[in-house]
Design a protein around this nucleic acid. Structure first.
Length: 449
RNA sequence: GGGGGUGUAGCUCAAUUGGUUAGAGCGCUGGCCUGUCACGCCAGAGGUUGCGAGUUCGAGUCUCGUCACUCCCGCCA
């Protein structure tokens, strides 16, 4: 697949460029691996979380079509789909807009799926704005191989006698529900699991209706008016044997709760043989127009929902100062079968705008901005073409093609959950002389042998 | 870093309150049959129940430790 990727990218006129592995710490994103320097006592390299900044400078330098199968490093906890070192298909191009990226990546994925599985990926992929994908699927990486979409009942229950719902609407929230078709046979334990999912996301409970023997079995349905019931039947297509689950909360929470519920119930319905999710089908889509910024309540500041180099969509740019929350980014994720395969954006190429983002919105001091990103702002000053790019998780891609549940299954010599290599027994202690050369004193006691 | 779950044959799983020689399906090997195509029939191999301690007359089952996997929170710009 690496070969297929290189051949395709070469045919499209891209130049493969290697970027340094010994990079510098830019602690905005994931935790980095540090490498001590022998020649510069007390100073460190960092292994790159991605070649992001290098590739943007390549754009300034006139390499207008760059790609790399890039090794990336992140010192975070592991998961089935996360390893401390992994590979991405890293792409950046100049003088383009989003459409160019969509067309390129659709072509690449089409080629890869054809080569590996002789599977014809239909193009173009559907594009769904973030707002809509959350409304319909409760996830920014939905599995669209099954429908079970979330319904919105905010207006229908705004004046409901059921205070839990009308109260949520009064506070500016929403009322949403999902129909788990044929899941009225849900067990007590499964209901409890789902309630815990909802509570884990801050809900007080999980309202439900079981439709059995022509009857709505539910502790709350007695509060519903006939109009409200009619709205439910119509919007959720309620039939005998269905299970309806509700979330009344602020918008994002309600969406996420039902998104989790959607995934959970779909899994159970597959076990029961009442839903089919074909393993040999691949539903690709683009999720677009993510919010550029999200607010961190604890830190009381804005942070980039993607990364700080993402350009705002043009018609929202003037709202950066007045209404940062509503600014959408020119960011896009490519999603297949509930897996986020990659993401990217059209970048900021104007030094002033980049500086505004760093200093006014992200509240980095000018000194910090200069120390961490000064070389980029400097490069931008000499005239940087409009550019953008994307990175696809290569390990995830291979796992998808192989039908593997974990990227560990498609990586030679993977790390364990605790980050050690069982083959070579790394990480391991080093000799005192090596530490002296690196000007390092250890504070941890040496492990007893 | 915190919390939950899991670990039994190559794979998917079973094994009652702790109780005989740890079972089944699929797969594998051999034989037979065959108008077969998810063939059928017969036979067989395959296990230190992740590892190490402990409790017990007796541990797959209980306790502790450890390793691995997995999910959730944190983290993953």
């Amino acid at each position: 697949m690496a070969t297929a990727t290189r051949v395709f990218m070469d045919e499209q006129g891209f130049l493969e460029v290697e970027t340094p592995t010994l990079f510098k710490s830019t602690p905005e994103g994931a935790r980095e691996f540090l490498v001590p320097s022998r020649i510069s006592p007390g100073e460190f390299y960092a292994l790159p979380q991605s070649p992001q900044q290098f590739k943007q400078i390549l754009m300034c330098a006139g390499v207008d079509k760059y790609f790399q199968l890039a090794r990336c490093f992140r010192d975070e906890d592991l998961r089935a789909d996360r390893q401390p070192e992994f590979t991405q298909i890293d792409v950046e191009m100049s003088f383009i807009d989003r459409e160019d990226i969509y067309a390129l990546i659709e072509g690449l994925l089409k080629t890869i799926w054809k080569t590996a599985l002789d599977y014809d990926v239909p193009t173009p992929f559907p594009r769904i704005p973030y707002r809509e994908v959350m409304d319909r699927y409760g996830s920014d990486k939905p599995d669209t191989r099954y429908a079970m979409e979330i319904g919105d009942l905010t207006e229908d229950f705004a004046a409901s006698g059921f205070k839990v719902f009308s109260g949520a609407v009064e506070r500016g929230g929403v009322v949403k529900a999902i129909n788990a078709k044929g899941f009225a046979c849900v067990t007590q334990g499964q209901m409890e699991t789902m309630t815990n999912i909802a509570k884990g996301l801050g809900a007080k409970g999980l309202a439900f209706i079981k439709v059995e023997n022509g009857e709505w079995k539910s502790p709350i349905v007695k509060f519903f008016s006939d109009t409200e019931k009619a709205a439910l039947i119509e919007k959720l297509n309620i039939e005998e044997g269905d299970l309806i689950l509700f979330a009344a909360d602020e918008w994002l929470n309600a969406c996420e709760i039902l998104g989790r519920i959607r995934q959970y119930t779909a899994g159970k319905l597959v076990e029961l043989g009442k839903l089919e999710i074909p393993a040999d089908q691949f539903n690709f889509l683009w999720v677009i127009e993510f919010p550029l910024l999200a607010f961190d309540r604890e830190m009381n500041r804005w942070f980039s929902s993607h990364h700080p180099f993402t350009s705002p969509v043009e018609e929202d740019a003037d709202k950066l100062e007045t209404d940062p929350k509503s600014v959408r980014g020119q960011h896009y994720d490519v999603v297949v079968n509930g897996v986020e395969l990659g993401g990217g954006s059209i970048r900021i190429h104007q030094p002033e705008l980049q500086k505004t983002i760093f200093e006014d919105l992200l509240k980095l001091s000018p000194e910090v901005t200069q120390a961490r990103f000064g070389y980029m702002l400097e490069a931008f000053k000499y005239g940087c073409p409009p550019h953008g790019g994307i990175a696809l998780g290569f390990d995830r891609l291979i796992a998808l093609l192989c039908g593997a549940d974990s990227i560990r299954d498609v990586i030679a010599f993977p790390k364990t959950t605790k980050g050690s290599c069982l083959m070579t027994d790394s990480p391991a202690a080093v000799e005192a002389k090596q530490l002296r050369d690196l000007h390092i004193d250890l504070k941890v006691a040496k492990k007893a042998e």
